[in-house]
Structures are given as C-alpha cells and as structure tokens.
Design a binder for these strands. Structure first.
Lengths: 110, 110
DNA sequence: CCCTTATTCAACCGATTGGTTGACGTTTTC
DNA sequence: GAAAACGTCAACCAATCGGTTGAATAAGGG
C-alpha cells in the first residue's frame, strides 16, 4: 500500500541508521561528524544518510562545503500511526493514548 | 544495539508481511488461508511467516495438519517505544509523554 | 491403504544491501 | 593558486532477500 512505510521501516531496520537518528536527536550534524563514532568509511555513512533522506527521516542542507543533517521526525508519524492502529497497545488504555496523541500532535502543529 | 529492533523493523518493511499482520488482526488463520489473497506461491508466504515469527510478531501453533498463525502484538511494543522515545514527538510535551508511557507500560505488565 | 490436504524444504534465480576502495568535484584556507 | 577538508560517485564484492519450482513430510478422510 504505502510505499513510504516500506522505506521508513527499511531505514529503521539498520542499527547504524538508528544510531544516526539518535545522534541527530541532540543536534544537527555535518556528515563528517556523523561518521566519526562509527568504525566504517565515510562513503558508507554517506550511503546510510541517503537511505535516511529517501525515507524522509532526515533532510540534508549544504552550507559552504559542509552538508548539515537534520532530523525530520514527522516521517516517523505515519509509521507510528500504522503500528498504533495495531495491537501494539493491546492491554493499554488505547482511548487515553489516542486522546494523548491527538492533543500532542495537534499542539506540535504538524 | 537491540537485535530485536533490527528484525522487527525489517519484518515490517515488507508490504506483504504488513498485510498479513493486518489480516491476523481480525482472527487467527491457517497458513493456506493467509496465502489465499496473495498472488504468490504458498512457499513464499510460508517464508514470510517465518520472518514474522522470528521477529516475534506472530506465533505459529500446529494443530493436526493445520498450522495456525496468531498475532503477537507485544512484539511491536519495543519498536513502538523506540519510535516514540524519539523525535516523532519533537516539540511535544515529552515529559508528559514519558509519564504516560511509564504508567501505561507498567499497567500492561509487559 | 491410498489420496488429498497442509506445509515445509532445497535448490536456484535476479535484485538489493551494506560494505570497501580510489578517483573526483567543491569550497575553504594558506 | 596549491593544498586541505568535505562529501559523493563508480566499480566492485559477498551476503541477504523475495520470489520460483519441485520434491518431501505429515496428517486426515475415503
């Protein structure tokens, strides 16, 4: 159905890419700095960043010779809603959860 | 980090497998019945079911010659919490969200 | 017992993935 | 303007993926 879900979940399936997302949670980062903690070539990281960009999970903006990577958390929303529509919260107070989400998502001005 | 997240997200990245999960949301199903709506060999579906089982998203129980597939929604919880702990809620009241999750996950007795 | 139904296994296939290396284009700095 | 820093591209590689087919196993039904 949604090709977007395919790419978002596929992007999240790799631990390196999830780590990158976590790092970007703190701040925007240059590609080189993203790569620094990983035991892997810069080109490999560059590819991971392309995957994340295609999935819409991050955006990249070039300023000077530095390309800045920025988390794009809204891309997680569709996937998250899909999971939620599901049993994910079985046994939880789904109504309360939904009310919470409605309220919070609205406040975030998506 | 968590190898489980790898397999869960990878399992969710395929539209056929997501469809299967949706079908199982309604009721437990035999492998043959799961395969019926898909334009694909039974063996292919069998493989998809193995992937879903490895990810813990479903369980399979053989009764007689029929193997029943059952949704295991708790497996989505870890992945879901990972996503939520995340930027999906950037700009939202994260503290309130965390309190909510703590409360609800505790209540669910995961 | 044989036949059918239910499911998996094994071998194979082409496409994709996650990594490497080395060359290349840009922008900055000296 | 040459050198360094930033990042991508292209070619390659082994491993995995999503599918096929055909044979094999297991359990019921006549």
């Amino acid at each position: 159905m949604s090709p977007k879900l395919d790419t978002v979940f596929a992007a999240l399936a790799d631990p390196t890419r999830r780590s990158i997302l976590s790092m970007l949670l703190e701040d925007d980062m240059a590609v080189t700095d993203v790569a620094e903690p990983f035991d892997m070539s810069l080109a490999a990281i560059s590819k991971h960043l392309i995957v994340l960009t295609s999935a819409g999970l991050i955006t990249q903006e070039k300023r000077g010779r530095v390309k800045w990577c920025k988390l794009e958390p809204n891309a997680l929303k569709e996937a998250s809603v899909w999971m939620q529509s599901f049993g994910m919260m079985e046994g939880l107070d789904l109504d309360a959860f939904e009310r919470f989400l409605d309220h919070e998502l609205e406040a975030s001005g998506d």
